[in-house]
Design a protein around this nucleic acid. Structure first.
Lengths: 307, 307
DNA sequence: TCCACTGATACCGTTTTCGCATCATGCGCC
DNA sequence: GGCGCATGATGCGAAAACGGTATCAGTGGA
């Protein structure tokens, strides 16, 4: 098998072919002229093909050399390109990133986050998957590189290679039918809702938020009177609009402007809910940029408004 | 500039990536295992990118390595391809050959010659140019790699790097109007034509054939009574058919079966005309095959018939 | 005829690279 | 749970490869 192993030989050949002069080619390559002579000899020996016709007065390409010149240039270029691509993947500016997120992220956060990622890493292909928090933490290493989840506890990060980071905390709001007697209030206390009917997230599919909201109520010393369950926000808010009960939702639910529903912020200090990032090591290099972008976008949404 | 110079590093990387095992990769490459370890290290150092994740128990590709594997395989393949192409050009089975030929070659010789070349060197692109002998010998190094010419003298080959080779000799025929009194003869002697009117090739565009035919007549001790000139065979034979005169043409003119014209072979020993190849060094590698094919085709046409 | 200039070669010191032997580490088995 | 085996990494000495300087040899022009 006669094959090329050293791209320096190709560089020498390209230089000589373009300069048609061994000494000038050597200068271009910052080498002594005999080195270039030997590289051309080695290239011709390795390929078994005479590529250059040379006398002491002039250098010219053979037919085989003419064709090989194009191939050599392309090979050198492709080699550089391959290295550059690998470097860009390692830097996280090229590649693929699979992002999982809970439904409510799509209300406000997702659009500016995608815009920011497009700005920072346009060559990273994003795969978006709307999933529940539970599904995401389970599938984390399979389909999802990074998850945006609700109510991630610090203690959960002890799992193997599981890492997490708090993103933002938002105030809980009460969703009321717009003709409800409390709908005109600018703020409410949980205690005022103790005897009212609640629509709440069902435990089996979304246990985390279910448990969190019950815990929030418990800190206000009551157990809500649950009259219905809904696993998605539009369903839940439609039920509120139909005056079946009221619901506790994150502030970002305001963004979907539900018809016939008023959202009133809760004044209780602990009436909040958090969004966090979670991922599993090793992660794609684009993750760092993603975390940065997500934090920036969350911060921009967080500070101007009250939590 | 961080770049690859050694394709052996890529081979090592591909082997390790495919085997996911340094020792097996080393065996595949017929190397000791430490060599492979160091080649991977060198590749990662040269590119500045970690391509493999390796513990003592398993080897896996990083994201950058996964993409780089494809590029590395393609680069190695392209390098082999480039060498193979150059070798094929040097062997003359790939490339380009420009063939010049005089008009009469198209009558008989050209078709089987092209078929033979297609069979022997299908990847050689042929450029065909019908030109006079004079034009070909002038343009030889410019546009035409090899010329098929009439009446090439040995003394002409003394020119710089001009080479030649006799191809075939064919008998001259007399072209007569089919109702001419001599048209029924199976053979004729030049001396019988001494007083008849001749149509002949004009000297300026085709001096070689003009001079040759006059010389042939001179050896039969007469100077033809030239009543008209024609530079192409169809024109000349149309004039013969119109009974303007008679003409001397090579045997291959039979192949065009001119209407209203009879071709009668000349019995004189010297009443022949030759086709030769001419080329200029250096010539494309495909020339050898061409000479071989042309000789074979000429021989096949030459031997079954009388010259 | 000589000179200037070209690519090829000889030689030498340095660097690189190879293979062997060995080390460090991590998983599995008893 | 400690021992053993397999794996990739490292140390080292010998050999090969490589680059640079000096020089040779061929060619074309003054």
């Amino acid at each position: 098998m006669t094959a090329i192993t050293d791209l320096d030989l190709l560089s020498a050949f390209v230089a000589v072919a373009e300069e048609r002069h061994f000494r000038r080619a050597a200068e271009r390559l910052h080498l002594a002229q005999p080195v270039v002579s030997r590289r051309i000899q080695r290239l011709e020996r390795d390929t078994g093909v005479q590529l250059l016709e040379r006398s002491t007065r002039q250098v010219s390409l053979t037919d085989a050399g003419t064709g090989f010149l194009d191939d050599a240039r392309r090979l050198l270029h492709d080699a550089d390109l391959a290295v550059a691509r690998a470097q860009r993947v390692a830097q996280g500016v090229l590649g693929r990133l699979s992002i999982g997120f809970v439904e409510s992220v799509a209300f406000e956060l997702l659009a500016p986050l995608l815009a920011e990622l497009e700005r920072r890493v346009p060559d990273v292909t994003l795969e978006l998957r709307e999933l529940s928090t539970e599904q995401q933490l389970t599938d984390l290493h399979a389909d999802v590189d990074v998850a945006i989840v609700r109510e991630l506890g610090e203690h959960e990060l002890s799992a193997e290679h599981l890492r997490g980071r708090h993103l933002l905390t938002e105030r809980l709001h009460v969703a009321l039918p717009e003709r409800h007697r409390l709908a005109g209030r600018s703020t409410l206390q949980l205690a005022e809702l103790a005897d009212l009917p609640f629509i709440i997230f069902p435990r089996p599919p979304v246990p985390r938020l279910h448990d969190h909201l019950l815990a929030v109520c418990a800190r206000a010393d009551f157990h809500p009177d649950v009259v219905a369950h809904a696993a998605q926000y539009p369903t839940m808010l439609a039920m509120v609009a139909a005056a079946r009960g009221l619901a506790l939702v994150p502030a970002c639910a305001r963004a979907i402007r539900p018809r016939g529903v008023r959202l009133v912020p809760l004044g209780d200090a602990h009436a909040t809910t958090s969004l966090s990032l979670a991922w599993q090591e090793p992660a794609p290099a684009a993750l760092d940029t993603f975390i940065d972008a997500a934090s920036a976008v969350a911060h921009a949404h967080d500070t101007p408004r009250e939590i």
